[in-house]
Deep mutational scan, measured.
Amino acid sequence: QVALSRTQVCGILREELFQGDAFHQSDTHIFIIMGASGDLAKKKIYPTIWWLFRDGLLPENTFIVGYARSRLTVADIRKQSEPFFKATPEEKLKLEDFFARNSYVAGQYDDAASYQRLNSHMNALHLGSQANRLFYLALPPTVYEAVTKNIHESCMSQIGWNRIIVEKPFGRDLQSSDRLSNHISSLFREDQIYRIDHYLGKEMVQNLMVLRFANRIFGPIWNRDNIACVILTFKEPFGTEGRGGYFDEFGIIRDVMQNHLLQMLCLVAMEKPASTNSDDVRDEKVKVLKCISEVQANNVVLGQYVGNPDGEGEATKGYLDDPTVPRGSTTATFAAVVLYVENERWDGVPFILRCGKALNERKAEVRLQFHDVAGDIFHQQCKRNELVIRVQPNEAVYTKMMTKKPGMFFNPEESELDLTYGNRYKNVKLPDAYERLILDVFCGSQMHFVRSDELREAWRIFTPLLHQIELEKPKPIPYIYGSRGPTEADELMKRVGFQYEGTYKWVNPHKL
């Protein structure tokens, strides 16, 4: 086992960053958080920038500027975001240094004079007029057009580079997404736009490419001749908990499936790229999406959770019991969808996408189930092999396979070949997804960000279904809070070829 401390991990990262040409360590950078008073800024962006600063992973002359409508001070920003920093008493001095680099400007999102004030403020910072500028839009999409237009007109660096990070949702359907994309691309070049999907920053999602293309053993079996089906799962054990009003506007397909799960599907299904260059990788992902037809209604199961009468606390409440959810809402909190990649490698292999709230566990994984062994000599005792990439929690890679049961006879039983990170790298604290992705933006690497043509294809696949749901308002199937979801989803999976045995229990190697 390799035991690495946080300091050692960050030392390795620093070495990698400083050796590259793309990370300008000594240049002045300004990180501007648009929507600095909001939840995302408070819980994710400010803490992430602090962790990067604490670990010495930001360029040395980096300033952080918050911008929002609320009249706040840096002290206010500190008060609301610091509880999420997880700072230790030993880091007190470092924390003071961090907040000394912070400033805040209040202004409207659609007022040109406010942006001119913001620009004057940035120019007044040390070497601010020639600094590289990175704008993070932690804002609702309704203000994107006004904000990007004003940034472009008043706040661009004339000497350094300018980059803009856009948070999902990128529209509600193909038409609104196209409108937003066309607007942003009329102001910024594609190499300046970073559409963030934080799932692409997760260690195991990034590991998929290495697993596939750096190991000879997987190449020959990664196709329709050997793989019976692919299941991509995202499960949350909690409901909307008072935030249903926002969720109800989008629903589970827009929230998770059309982005996170579809991105994971691309990494499983794509061909080997010409290189690890950002556009070479994204070219292959677009090719996969172009091979997927629009979702067919007979390959869809929609569910909505109801309270568990035997549960406790939140578990007793259904989705419609959330006071922020519109009365009688038919918005799905669970969806199972089957897609097919219609190309030579994957023809006929079902890709089953499942996601839901208020389920029995927290889990995100990719599961490849292989065909049955031909010419069975073990009297149907063999179960199908599976390769599982567990994204969260407890990152893991393992192969479910058959071995001989101890004893006199040739009785096979299920076991696993474990390729888990935790076994080799004991207690290594890896940077989280937002840390990686923000560092990628500083480096100018777009590999783990969504390109406009990729986004367009993703919406093309799901828009007809979303429009049909909005028009017909089908009643989702009720499922109990804390269950596996509607049984109809299991029946759909069985119908397209997935075999669920229920006889195997994964042993978490992190707890051995």
Rank of each mutant, 00 (worst) to 15 (best):
P393A: 08
Q304D: 00
F378I: 07
M257I: 09
A433Q: 00
P406T: 06
V306A: 14
K473D: 10
N299Q: 13
R451D: 03
S483R: 07
L455Y: 03
Y481P: 05
S329V: 03
I438W: 03
A332T: 05
A274V: 15
Q380T: 13
K357R: 02
A269V: 06
L359P: 03
T324M: 10
L419I: 06
Q468R: 13
L320R: 09
P476K: 02
G444R: 08
T330P: 11
T487V: 15
V397W: 07
E454R: 01
H371K: 15
H260S: 03
E386H: 02
W346H: 03
F410M: 13
F351M: 06
E416M: 02
T463Q: 06
L261P: 02
T420G: 07
E386N: 04
F378Y: 10
I438H: 01
I352K: 00
N343K: 05
Y504P: 05
P486N: 03
K426W: 09
G348S: 09
P406Q: 07
M264W: 01
N394R: 08
S278F: 08
Y434H: 08
V325R: 02
T503V: 11
S415Y: 03
Q304W: 01
Y425D: 06
T420H: 10
G485L: 06
R254P: 05
K405L: 11
L262T: 13
L465N: 02
K404Y: 02
S278L: 02
I480R: 14
E365Y: 05
A396K: 01
A274S: 14
K429R: 14
L289Y: 06
A315R: 10
Y504L: 04
C443R: 10
S329R: 04
Q380N: 14
Y425S: 06
E312N: 14
M270H: 07
A269K: 01
V325C: 08
S483K: 08
C382S: 15
P406D: 01
Q499Y: 12
S415M: 08
D279E: 10
I377F: 11
T333C: 00
L430C: 09
R495E: 12
D255R: 04
G497W: 04
N394Q: 13
V450E: 04
I377H: 07
H371I: 08
K475N: 13
I377K: 06
R390P: 02
E361N: 07
S275F: 06
Q392I: 03
V281N: 04
E416Y: 06
C355L: 05
E361V: 06
G422W: 08
M270C: 13
E491K: 14
G303A: 09
S483V: 05
T420K: 06
Y340Q: 13
R436S: 10
L320T: 07
K357A: 01
G328S: 13
F334Q: 09
M264P: 00
M493F: 12
D490W: 06
N360F: 00
K317P: 09
Q468W: 11
P326T: 07
N308W: 07
H371W: 08
E472A: 15
K475T: 15
T399R: 02
I389F: 06
L419D: 01
E435A: 08
I477S: 13
N411C: 09
N427L: 08
Y398V: 00
V306H: 14
G444N: 08
V301K: 10
V300T: 14
Q258F: 02
Q468L: 11
A332R: 03
M493E: 12
I389T: 05
Q499I: 12
E284V: 09
K405N: 13
R495I: 14
G356E: 02
I352R: 02
K357Y: 02
Q304G: 00
R367V: 04
I292N: 04
V300D: 00
N299A: 10
K357Q: 02
E435Y: 04
V397F: 11
V450A: 09
L466K: 04
V366Y: 03
D310Q: 10
T399F: 08
E457C: 12
R484K: 04
V337K: 08
Q392G: 13
K287G: 09
Y500V: 06
D322G: 05
E470I: 07
T276Q: 11
V268H: 00
P393K: 07
T276P: 10
Q381A: 13
R390V: 08
S483P: 04
D347Q: 13
P476Q: 03
E413F: 11
E414Q: 14
G307N: 11
L471N: 15
S452N: 14
D432T: 09
F370E: 01
E386P: 02
K400D: 03
G497A: 10
A335I: 05
I292E: 07
E435N: 10
R345E: 10
G482M: 05
T324L: 10
P309M: 12
D453F: 00
P431R: 06
T324G: 14
L437F: 03
T316F: 11
Y504V: 05
V428T: 08
V281A: 08
E472D: 13
V286Q: 08
H379P: 15
T331E: 06
D347W: 08
A364R: 02
L368D: 02
D418N: 07
V281P: 04
A315K: 12
L419P: 01
S329E: 05
V450F: 04
R354I: 01
V496E: 13
M257S: 09
N343H: 07
V281T: 08
V388I: 11
N411D: 13
T403C: 13
T324N: 08
G407S: 00
A335N: 03
W459Q: 01
L465F: 14
N427W: 08
D255L: 04
E312K: 13
N360Y: 03
V300A: 14
E271G: 07
D418A: 07
V306K: 15
D440L: 02
T331W: 03
G318Q: 05
E414W: 10
L368P: 01
A374N: 15
T503F: 09
L417R: 03
G328N: 13
P431T: 08
Y504E: 04
G307V: 05
Y398W: 11
M402S: 09
Q296S: 10
Q258K: 00
G303S: 00
V300L: 15
S278R: 07
R367I: 04
E457Y: 09
V341L: 14
D280W: 07
N427Y: 08
M257K: 05
S329L: 02
D255Q: 02
F410V: 14
G348T: 06
G497N: 14
Y504Q: 06
Q392K: 03
A396P: 02
N343I: 03
C355D: 03
S415H: 04
V349N: 03
F351I: 08
E457I: 10
A336P: 02
R345Y: 08
G318W: 01
V366C: 12
